[in-house]
Nucleic acid binder design. Structure first.
Lengths: 124, 124, 124, 124
DNA sequence: GTGGTCTAGACCACC
DNA sequence: GTGGTCTAGACCACA
């Protein structure tokens, strides 16, 4: 995994975990990699993974069985989706539209780009 | 002005200045507020405004007449437009589409929201 | 049995065993459940029950007949009572009173709550 | 400050901060010691203080002015009181009464001890 | 084996 | 000066 430089690593690890869940790679009630394992895999200090897991626990996305490991919560998917949807609809979309206006990009162009985005996706 | 918590203040001030120019509120070769004035207006440490102005100077958006003040560059508008358009088209749009997919938001919904966004804008 | 999250499980199992004895559910010289049985009942790793039994043996509350099982000690009740009373009177009560003060809870309110606690208990 | 061994240091630091606020030693909207300063004073690693401040921020007891320092929230006192009161009334008191019963301690004895506790307090 | 805590020390962005 | 992040490495309690 390659980390972006603008965002702190532990936040990117949180995103990574959430994406595994969103993409159904890690299912609910399933054990997720141990702190040490994920740290080794991502070539990162265990503390950093720990911090990501910590925050995810507070959000209720994962939970801990003591001495055993971390598990995906029953309602992890809903929690992630609802919180992401909220910020997307109420913050990102309005900002996005505002930028379109500022930059003089019309909705027709967006339409064009969306179609080609979909086409590219299907090719893969 | 309300500052977002995620983004550093000086970057938000840069955005603010650029927007004034994009919206033709500050015209080329016009004097912009002094560091102190803007700091007072935004209730921010003057150093922070200073840093924003510094970065804008490096981008060639504004220039400084020593002992006189800061001015909007001749080609400020083009510079801002071209750089913003670049990141918008090549980074923000693809990420935006990816998020739409992850969150299960269709293009029709985007269409709806865009129309209502435009309507709201015209009311003001 | 529901385990609290703050306290380690083996300590809670120790409390559980001691309570059975205090409540005269498990009598002196009586055989107590095997490690495996209790582990199954509490849905816990046998090692964890083992550890609790170990500590209880060191406290002299239970003793082990090799190959046979664990038994409540002759003087288990007295031991538990005296040790618990000691920490209760000298640690818990002062802390409790200090918290009452900090939180602005008067002794009259405690009185009220005690009476309703007793009433609830008798109903059962 | 002497740290207890049973509880993790950062939790004890959180308690310490909350107590300063409860006792009106640190007032709302007032700056609290910097991470480094408190770490030096308590003879603890800055990271440990940081962790305590982090959690307090999430609880809304303190907030951060970027590059300036941490401040006591407007409603810090209410937040601390309400959360502590809640656990005290709903968890600690019932447990306390249960222990009284188990140990055969009557309410009259509690009364006696409370009176002497109050007297001791006034002497100081 | 698991997570949790702590230290020491470094570097960074920001105000 | 402030907080924030990260590493390396250690030790511990728990299952």
């Amino acid at each position: 995994m390659n980390f972006s430089e603008n965002k702190s690593i532990y936040l990117q690890i949180m995103d990574f975990v959430q994406e595994q869940i969103l993409l159904n790679k890690w299912l609910k009630e399933e054990k997720i990699p141990s702190v040490r394992d994920l740290a080794a895999e991502l070539q990162v200090n265990p503390n950093t993974v720990m911090r990501a897991y910590d925050s995810l626990q507070q959000e209720g996305v994962i939970y801990n069985r003591r001495g055993v490991g971390n598990y995906v919560s029953q309602d992890a998917l809903e929690k992630i989706l609802s919180s992401r949807k909220k910020t997307f609809l109420h913050s990102e979309i309005p900002l996005f539209f505002k930028n379109m206006q500022l930059l003089g990009i019309g909705f027709d162009e967006l339409d064009r780009r969306y179609k080609s985005f979909i086409k590219d996706n299907n090719k893969r």
